[in-house]
């Protein structure tokens, strides 16, 4: 039973290797007594029947019900993250859930909305190893009652060449064992760096919305975009905007109002990192 900040999580598994992998990336989270109310209860079990012998597989159960198809054992921790994303997107309506990575420094947060292939996880991963605090990788949780961003600093996943890119600046990075996905290549989960977990209840003010694009070899390019465009682009990638009605509109509008909005194209890690440091410096002056 773990305290993840916005939710409490119960994890069970009859597969020791899976628990070992999870403990490696989840070990900073406080363990709660087992008799506490779990917001989410997950179980990873061996595949049943003949499958169990044919191929080592894990099946995910959410509150006792199977979710998704069984996967190979090394992918089990990633499956658990997918399951948690799925459940959180359906259940946590005290927040406007924005599909984005979020990082923070000096109380100010940068929201990196996810477009497929944009590399938001990679960028957030890089920043989180370079002095920025990882607020969340999958969900920007905008608290409807306060307008602040709620941290949800879970282990984040990296794929393919991103793993090496982040390891290059953070050789001490800790991960689950590497899983070779037949289509997507290697995948790992990374333990959140620094004090991200310890400060999991410390909210942040939205200050920048940056739509990132990674293009190999490209030089840094920044294009400001209008608040209107930013509003609709972010709205397009929320999980529960319409469910929250006026409160959702108010939360999103006030977030966009408080943010500088821009597109960022980068091809080199150091360009991207120094760009974010520049953003922060400008903020200090202003």
């Amino acid at each position: 039973m773990l305290d993840l900040g916005p939710i409490t999580l119960r994890v069970r598994s009859d597969i020791p290797a899976v628990l070992d992998g999870l403990m490696r990336v989840y070990r900073d989270f406080p363990v709660l007594p087992p008799d506490r109310f779990a917001d989410v209860s997950l179980e990873l079990r061996h595949g049943t029947g003949l499958r169990r012998f044919a191929r080592k597989q894990a099946q995910l159960f959410v509150d006792g019900e199977p979710l998704f198809f069984p996967v190979a054992l090394p992918l089990a921790p990633v499956l658990m993250e997918w399951g948690m994303n799925w459940v959180v997107s359906l259940r946590e309506h005290a927040y406007l859930l924005v599909h984005a990575s979020v990082v923070e420094r000096e109380g100010k947060a940068a929201i990196l909305p996810a477009l497929p292939g944009s590399g938001k996880s990679t960028l957030a991963g890089l920043l989180s190893m370079s002095g920025w605090r990882l607020l969340s990788d999958e969900f920007g949780m905008l608290e409807v009652s306060t307008g602040a961003l709620r941290p949800f600093p879970r282990p984040f996943s990296l794929k393919g060449t991103s793993i090496a890119a982040v390891r290059a600046i953070a050789p001490q990075m800790e991960t689950t064992e590497t899983y070779e996905h037949p289509e997507d290549g290697p995948m790992v989960l990374v333990r959140p760096a620094g004090d991200a977990v310890a400060r999991r209840n410390e909210r942040a003010e939205p200050r920048w919305i940056v739509f990132p694009t990674y293009k190999a070899g490209a030089s840094l390019a920044v294009t400001p975009i209008s608040k209107t465009d930013a509003f609709f682009e972010v709205q397009d990638d929320t999980f529960n905007y319409f469910m929250l009605r006026e409160a959702g509109f108010e939360a999103l509008a006030s977030m966009v109002d408080r943010c500088r909005c821009m597109r960022l194209t980068y091809g080199r890690t150091e360009d991207a990192l120094s760009f974010f440091d520049r953003l922060l410096a400008e903020e200090r002056v202003a």
Binding site: F68, F69, V71, W82, G83, W86, L90, F239
Partner: peptide, 8 residues
């Protein structure tokens, strides 16, 4: 068949 990572 399905891709769990595409759900949601």
């Amino acid at each position: 068949t399905g891709r769990p990572d595409l759900v949601g």
